[in-house]
Amino acid sequence: MFEQFKSKAEGVSAEVHRFATRFGALEFIIGFLQGEGVADRPGSYAIWAACPFLEGIERQSLQQFAGLKLEVTRELAAAAKIGISQMDWALADTGTLAGDSSRLDGRLASTLTGIHIALVPTSGILPDMPTLLTRLHPDASNYIAMITGPSRTADIERVLTIGVHGPSRLVIVFCDELGGTE
């Protein structure tokens, strides 16, 4: 299902990566931030919303990384270049990420920023939406969100343009070690 997900997600301009370990995923993210030249000034820094991935990681070592903030407010999110958050599920047949987004920080980090890096446990890949709806119920979440590729519009002369109100890049990082949400 991973391959199917990858091809569908890439079909809507998302970037898909997969790592066996947390360490591998973290290494990739740090490298990515460096490559994007994140720095501690408006428009250039990255924010990382609280998520299970972070729980197993030495926060202090991350905090030393200049230009990466582990706190998310609307002001910080509005001026951030990159937002990192975790999504619980991925739907193979449409290349969609999904999860409980009742928490504000995850939504801010994934919507107001220019680039969204989404961490996903590889075991969270499901075949399709009907399956998702059996796993994720409004009883457990007041805000269920699905994301399929970056923000897009075709409102001017039907020309597909990426990045209107939301991120213009969606970078999906699967981590095998992250375990499921179940």
Partner: peptide, 20 residues
């Protein structure tokens, strides 16, 4: 509607969520 498999964003809202 737009020949997409799914729109970029779908939100299922079932109650109030926190403000900042």
């Amino acid at each position: 509607a737009t020949a997409q498999l799914l729109t970029s964003y779908v939100s299922i809202i079932s109650g109030p969520t926190p403000n900042d």
